[in-house]
């Protein structure tokens, strides 16, 4: 005794299949929407700003007149601040990762640090700006300087460096380390000669990602007190400064159309820098993965 007839089964099956096609179409649309938005964003920026790009735009200081405004001070400021942030975050972050992976005994304390790092990665970037303003600018009296900005961003990207480096170090085969110990190497010798070289591509990729995050950050530096109009190039670690994203923000916020065009041109420069860095990270990872053979 059949519970359903063959006809009913096929009708039902067809319904299920149609539902499947509809859902598949929905999924495709969702992915396509994301891509369309990315394309719209890039097209919008390029069509607005490409004609404004020129050598003068790179070498001019900001100006009251949109046609003359340039990003010289902003680019130099970004380079200064991000270099400091990158160097500090890299050395401290890799150090912390080595400690957590190779030295720390697994226990409550280590997992507490781990939880803490995960939470720091989720703290809104603007809160780091408040921290930088209070600790570096006011308590350590560094002023609203390049170095205070660099340290603020260093704290911001530190969790990224730590987490990426930890993953890279964790992927080092234990046999490699044990081989080192068997030859009489000390812990640090094993870490420096075996673990770090093996984990280097992963660490570097994480560091580049962290730096590209730092390049694009705006809010923490505004809160920390970076300037929005800087008609001079920074001349040392104690100099006041602006960065490219703040310059873009400043131009976007102005009512004149000319400044919006300048903002679009600034965005093109920013995106080119970021994409180059990401491509470099991918290239490095690829190259080292091929080169490292144990």
């Amino acid at each position: 005794m059949a519970l359903i007839t063959e006809v009913a089964f096929h009708a039902h099956m067809r319904k299920r299949k149609i539902r499947g096609y509809v859902f598949y179409a929905l999924c495709l649309t969702a992915v396509a929407l994301g891509l369309v938005m990315l394309a719209a964003l890039l097209y919008n920026v390029l069509s607005e700003g490409l004609s404004r790009l020129s050598w003068d735009f790179i070498t001019n200081f900001p100006s009251r007149f949109p046609e003359r405004a340039g990003i010289h001070a902003a680019i130099l400021g970004s380079i200064y601040v991000v270099s400091i942030a990158g160097l500090v975050a890299f050395s401290l972050g890799v150090g912390a990762a080595i400690y957590l992976e190779e030295y720390a005994q697994k226990g409550t304390f280590a997992s507490f640090i781990q939880l803490n790092i995960a939470n720091l990665a989720g703290v809104p970037s603007i809160v780091y700006g408040i921290l930088g303003l209070e600790i570096f600018v006011r308590i350590m009296e560094l002023g609203k300087s390049v170095i205070a900005g660099g340290l603020t961003l260093a704290l911001l990207v530190l969790p990224i460096v730590i987490i990426a480096s930890q993953e890279a170090i964790r992927a080092v085969p234990p046999s490699l380390k044990e081989g080192g110990f068997a030859l009489g190497a000390t812990k640090w010798q094993v870490v420096r000669r075996l673990v770090l070289p093996y984990a280097f591509p992963g660490i570097l990729t994480g560091a580049i990602l962290a730096v590209s995050r730092a390049v694009g950050e705006t809010a923490p530096l505004i809160v920390m007190g970076a300037l929005t109009f800087v008609p001079f190039a920074p001349d040392g670690p104690m100099s006041r400064f602006t960065v490219l994203p703040i310059q873009i923000f400043n131009w976007v916020s102005r009512p004149q159309e000319g400044f919006h065009v300048a903002a679009a041109a600034g965005i093109i420069v920013l995106l080119v820098v970021l994409l180059t860095m990401n491509a470099f990270a991918v290239f490095l990872r690829h190259k080292f993965q091929k080169g490292t053979q144990w």
Partner: peptide, 30 residues
């Protein structure tokens, strides 16, 4: 060797503990 090793270990420990100082700093300042 032992001295170097100890030195490095505590240096690395300071790096790791910095994250806790950061959180403490954020909470204290706010």
């Amino acid at each position: 060797r032992n001295l170097t090793e100890a030195f490095i270990k505590y240096g690395l420990f300071l790096c790791a503990i910095l994250s806790i100082f950061t959180t403490a700093g954020i909470i204290a300042v706010l």
